[in-house]
Structures are given as C-alpha cells and as structure tokens.
Deep mutational scan, measured.
Amino acid sequence: SRWTEEEMETAKKGLLEHGRNWSAIARMVGSKTVSQCKNFYFNYKKRQNLDEILQQHK
C-alpha cells in the first residue's frame, strides 16, 4: 500500500527517535506493519535521505 506524506513524516520521526527499531516505528505510524516500515526504509532510503536521518539518531 502507498505511503501518505503523513505516514512518511511519522516514519522519519521514528527513525530519528528509534533508529532501526522497526516495531517501534510501526507502532508510531500505526497504519503500517513492521515489515512495511522496514521496506519503506530500504525503498525510500535514497529518495528521502533516510541515512542522514538515521545518523542523527542517538
């Protein structure tokens, strides 16, 4: 299923807060499964600069 802007923003916040904790990110997004969140990261990594966001994760 397609990702809305809102879901993407929430997933990015999740990456920032939780790093690669996909289940925590899935809980934040609410409408996507753990594997969908993981796939989002790998599919949108380049397009959305997700690696940069991940590097900011403490």
Rank of each mutant, 00 (worst) to 15 (best):
S1M: 06
S1P: 05
R2A: 11
R2Q: 06
R2M: 12
R2E: 15
R2G: 13
R2W: 09
R2H: 14
R2L: 13
W3N: 09
W3C: 13
W3V: 07
W3F: 09
T4L: 00
T4Y: 01
T4D: 02
T4S: 03
T4Q: 00
E5H: 09
E5K: 12
E5V: 10
E5D: 09
E5N: 09
E5F: 04
E5G: 06
E5P: 07
E5R: 07
E6K: 09
E6P: 09
E6T: 10
E6Y: 06
E6A: 14
E6I: 05
E7S: 09
E7W: 07
E7R: 11
E7G: 07
E7T: 04
E7Y: 02
E7H: 08
M8N: 09
M8A: 05
M8E: 05
M8W: 01
M8S: 02
M8Y: 02
M8I: 12
M8Q: 07
M8G: 05
E9V: 07
E9G: 03
E9F: 00
E9D: 12
E9P: 03
E9Q: 10
T10H: 04
T10V: 10
T10C: 09
T10Y: 10
T10D: 06
T10L: 15
T10I: 14
T10W: 07
A11Y: 15
A11R: 08
A11C: 02
A11G: 08
A11L: 13
K13I: 14
K13D: 05
K13G: 05
K13W: 06
K13P: 02
K13T: 04
G14M: 03
G14H: 03
G14R: 06
G14T: 06
G14L: 02
G14N: 03
G14S: 09
L15Y: 07
L15G: 00
L15K: 14
L15E: 01
L15N: 06
L16H: 05
L16A: 08
L16I: 13
L16W: 11
E17C: 06
E17L: 12
E17P: 01
E17D: 09
E17H: 10
E17N: 12
H18C: 03
H18G: 03
H18E: 03
H18Y: 03
H18Q: 07
G19T: 09
G19Q: 02
G19M: 15
G19Y: 08
G19S: 09
G19I: 14
G19R: 06
R20G: 07
R20M: 14
R20W: 12
R20C: 15
R20F: 08
R20A: 10
R20L: 14
N21S: 06
N21V: 15
W22H: 01
W22A: 01
W22R: 00
W22D: 02
S23Q: 13
S23Y: 13
S23H: 13
S23E: 15
S23R: 09
A24N: 08
A24G: 01
A24H: 03
A24M: 11
I25D: 02
I25P: 01
I25C: 01
I25K: 11
I25L: 06
I25F: 02
A26N: 00
A26Q: 03
A26M: 08
A26H: 01
A26P: 01
A26Y: 00
A26K: 02
R27K: 14
R27A: 13
R27Y: 03
R27L: 08
R27G: 08
R27W: 04
R27N: 11
R27S: 11
R27P: 01
R27Q: 14
M28G: 02
M28N: 06
M28A: 08
V29R: 01
V29H: 00
V29Q: 01
V29G: 02
V29K: 00
V29E: 00
V29P: 00
V29C: 05
V29S: 00
V29F: 04
V29A: 02
G30R: 07
G30M: 12
G30Q: 03
G30W: 11
G30K: 10
G30N: 03
S31E: 08
S31Y: 02
S31M: 06
S31T: 06
S31F: 01
K32C: 00
K32Q: 00
K32P: 00
K32T: 01
K32A: 03
K32R: 04
K32L: 01
T33E: 03
T33L: 14
T33P: 00
T33S: 13
T33R: 00
T33F: 15
T33N: 03
V34L: 14
V34A: 13
V34T: 12
V34Y: 04
S35W: 06
S35Y: 06
S35N: 13
S35V: 06
S35D: 15
S35H: 10
Q36K: 12
Q36T: 11
Q36R: 11
Q36F: 15
Q36N: 05
Q36I: 14
Q36C: 08
Q36D: 09
C37E: 01
C37I: 13
C37N: 01
C37D: 01
C37Q: 00
C37F: 08
C37Y: 00
K38N: 00
K38L: 03
K38S: 02
K38R: 10
K38M: 05
K38H: 03
K38A: 05
N39Y: 06
N39G: 07
N39P: 01
N39F: 05
N39I: 08
N39H: 08
N39E: 15
N39K: 12
F40L: 03
F40Q: 00
F40M: 05
F40Y: 01
F40H: 03
Y41P: 02
Y41L: 11
Y41G: 02
Y41S: 02
Y41R: 03
Y41I: 15
Y41N: 00
F42A: 12
F42R: 15
F42V: 12
F42S: 12
F42D: 15
F42I: 13
F42H: 14
F42N: 13
N43W: 02
N43Q: 15
N43F: 09
N43R: 12
N43C: 06
N43E: 14
N43H: 13
N43I: 09
N43G: 08
N43M: 07
N43D: 11
Y44A: 07
Y44F: 13
Y44S: 09
Y44G: 03
Y44C: 02
K45R: 10
K45H: 06
K45S: 06
K45T: 04
K46P: 11
K46Y: 04
K46L: 04
K46E: 14
K46M: 03
K46G: 09
K46V: 01
K46R: 06
R47I: 12
R47W: 15
R47N: 10
R47P: 13
R47Y: 01
Q48M: 11
Q48N: 14
Q48L: 15
Q48H: 14
Q48P: 13
N49I: 03
N49P: 12
N49H: 08
N49G: 15
N49W: 02
N49M: 04
N49D: 07
L50V: 06
L50K: 04
L50T: 11
D51I: 15
D51V: 02
D51H: 09
D51L: 04
D51G: 07
D51C: 14
E52S: 09
E52A: 14
E52N: 01
E52F: 01
E52W: 06
E52I: 06
E52Q: 12
I53C: 11
I53P: 11
I53D: 09
I53F: 07
I53N: 11
I53S: 10
I53L: 11
I53K: 10
L54T: 10
L54C: 08
L54F: 05
L54Y: 04
L54P: 08
L54S: 12
Q55R: 09
Q55M: 04
Q55H: 14
Q55Y: 03
Q55D: 08
Q55A: 08
Q55G: 10
Q55V: 06
H57E: 04
H57Y: 09
H57L: 12
H57M: 01
H57G: 13
